[in-house]
Design a protein around this nucleic acid. Sequence first.
DNA 1: CTATCTATTTAGAATAATTCTAATTATTGA
DNA 2: TCAATAATTAGAATTATTCTAAATAGATAG
Lengths: 151, 151
Amino acid sequence: MSDSAKAFQTDEQFNQRLHTSGFRFTPQRQHVYNVLMETRDHPTADQVFIRSREGMPEISMATVYNCLDALVKSGLVRQVSLDRAATRYCPNMTEHCHFHCTDCGKIFDIDLDDKPSVPEAKLPRGFKPEQIEVSMRGHCPDKGCSGHSRN
Amino acid sequence: MSDSAKAFQTDEQFNQRLHTSGFRFTPQRQHVYNVLMETRDHPTADQVFIRSREGMPEISMATVYNCLDALVKSGLVRQVSLDRAATRYCPNMTEHCHFHCTDCGKIFDIDLDDKPSVPEAKLPRGFKPEQIEVSMRGHCPDKGCSGHSRN
DNA sequence: CTATCTATTTAGAATAATTCTAATTATTGA
DNA sequence: TCAATAATTAGAATTATTCTAAATAGATAG
Ligand SMILES: [Mn+2]
Ligand SMILES: [Mn+2]
Ligand SMILES: [Zn+2]
Ligand SMILES: [Zn+2]
């Protein structure tokens, strides 16, 4: 499988996204993005750093943070905040929410049929929402994560 | 206004909640809880520490963290995670979601008429959710927070 | 193509948030 | 009252993230 086949965004689309957000294309940004797309779990910046070094040994932690910032600001990657833990990164830009397993720590993408919409009436006058997010916490189906019952 | 009138939970209810979660009652836990209930904004642990010292000068930062943990685990307080920023604490246990203003940083409680329910069908077999959360980000109505337009 | 300007990368130091440690004190229950 | 256990405290330690200043690379004008 070629690199370009793996990525959802073509190089041109990727480049375009960066540019319209005022960023330049750099091999580091492309590489960090590819690393995220390769294994579509939800790694921490540190894990992205470790994985990125495999194909690009000179990359630095600061650059990984810079790249992740640029990708987030360009709308190519989502940030996932967890309670008192390192931020995770998600390259799946389709409408979905996150399920955080409190047993194993993994994060799962969950499809949403209706995209979460504000019941606008409920928002007091003057609030201008730009993003709505749904998240869940609980036990995942993995062995040992569903508590005592193991049917 | 007396202290007990301010709090939604009576001392007995408060005590009960702690006990059923395996915690003892302590004046520090009560105090930290009262501090949160007094000003119902969404302070950081550090802000809680500063406010707590006013009425209890000997309290330590470690104790504030310990107390907040115990309160969260007892279901008396909610934790609010933000992107790469200190965790906030919310003593409003009624069904609501959080609106985070990206201009001023304030967090607002927004009522939800329908409590967010999982479209269970959507969750792949085996996932056991224990909590569902909705959050919003955008501009609040405060002066200067709604971007350029100021109608 | 070359000079110049600016964005980006880099290593490492600095900061901020949170957790840990070990000693002391408070609470509980016999 | 006493022993057992939980909680508090100060400060050190750790972790995540940001900052800094120098080096490098990409874009643009001539
Ligand atoms: Mn995701
Ligand atoms: Mn709240
Ligand atoms: Zn799990
Ligand atoms: Zn605001």
